[in-house]
């Protein structure tokens, strides 16, 4: 008779001396959310489901495509033919691999409006996303609700991963500021091979299993950076959180705030922040130019207005969208918008 009994099913994990029966019991009670079910997310979700993590929430809005099959190991040609939502296809594949656990599929983008609802009730978040807008959101929910999360990214044959714990390690903003600009390399532009993704996902899951099993002492507290083409591996100690970090020290949750605030901000690169009103406006650039002329240098056309004052400049469009140049601080960008354009 086939024996799926708990002790048998997870026997190799229980026998691993650093986990044991107690570690396995903790893992089986744990709840984990996976954001993004591309190559990273399917790799980590698969390992977590098979490891017996009791509850998995799989979040992705996309559908399976043929170009995914080279590295996204949970999907089949049928999934691609039917253009199945990734969250559903992944849930079905994982349910077939482990019927002990509960897997919830969420076919949606993670955004400022739903991030807390989707992430705040789990023990750990796994980042399987492909962009920093989502990662800044995960980071903010993690800090706000004291949740650890596992970052990873990979392109070509190189990747980076880190397990970030609020209060213990730097947060994403401590490490890279708000400097992640749009226009960096993506898997679509420069390609990617499966081994680097599997490695980065494996590092994420190893750290998550340590944490879930109550073995924080074994966590690396390091950034793993690896290049499988040039066979180069680096481990960088993360040290302490930044005492003046806008996110984890001052608790300014700008990415989360974007969903509810009248002005949403996005980072457009070094020293440029886009500020956008929730509803398109219909600005008279002539009138605005007249208001701003006493305050600085103004150039205006039908399409846009450029206003320079002190160390900052604003480019304003008739629909109310503005680019604030000269700051990386979203709060300052909002304040400048409110100050000079009004809201």
């Amino acid at each position: 008779m086939t024996d799926f009994a708990f002790e048998h099913r997870y026997s190799r994990q229980i026998r691993f001396r650093h986990l044991g029966a107690e570690g396995q019991a903790r893992i089986s009670r744990a709840r984990v959310a996976v954001v993004g079910l591309g190559a990273l997310g399917t790799a980590s979700a698969s390992q977590l489901a098979r490891a017996g993590v009791g509850y998995l929430r799989l979040i992705d809005r996309d559908v399976v495509e043929p170009s995914n099959l080279q590295r996204q190991l949970l999907y089949t040609e049928d999934d691609a033919r039917l253009a199945k939502p990734k969250a559903i296809a992944a849930r079905d594949a994982l349910a077939a691999a482990n019927s002990d656990i509960e897997v919830e599929a969420v076919v949606d983008d993670l955004d400022a409006a739903n991030a807390e609802q989707l992430l705040a009730d789990v023990d750990v978040v796994i980042d399987g996303s492909d962009n920093f807008e989502v990662r800044y959101l995960i980071n903010e929910v993690a800090v706000k609700h004291n949740l650890p999360w596992a970052y990873a990214g990979a392109v070509e044959a190189h990747g980076t991963s880190a397990f970030l714990r609020p209060g213990h390690t730097p947060c994403l903003v401590c490490l890279i500021g708000y400097g992640a600009r749009v226009g960096h390399d993506t898997c679509d532009t420069v390609g990617v091979i499966a081994p680097i993704v599997q490695w980065m996902a494996s590092f994420q899951v190893a750290e998550v299993l340590k944490f879930l099993a109550g073995r924080e002492d074994a966590l690396s507290d390091a950034i793993l950076q690896a290049d499988l083409w040039h066979t180069d591996v680096r481990l960088i100690r993360m040290g302490q959180p930044k005492p003046d970090c806008p996110c984890c020290a001052r608790r300014e949750f700008v990415a989360l705030g974007a969903g509810r605030r009248a002005l949403s901000v996005t980072f457009c690169g070094r020293q440029t922040i886009q500020v956008r009103p929730q509803h398109d406006a219909s600005l008279s650039l002539d009138a605005l130019a007249a208001r701003l002329r006493p305050l600085g240098h103004v150039r205006a056309s039908d399409a846009l207005l450029r206003f320079e004052t002190g160390d900052v400049a604003l480019t304003v469009f008739p629909n109310g969208r503005a680019l604030v140049h000269g700051t990386d601080d979203p709060a300052r960008a909002r304040a400048l918008y409110a100050q000079y354009i009004g809201m």
Partner: peptide, 10 residues
Amino acid sequence: IEMARFVGGG
């Protein structure tokens, strides 16, 4: 010096 790039893709 150790320099780590935070890679975007996933």
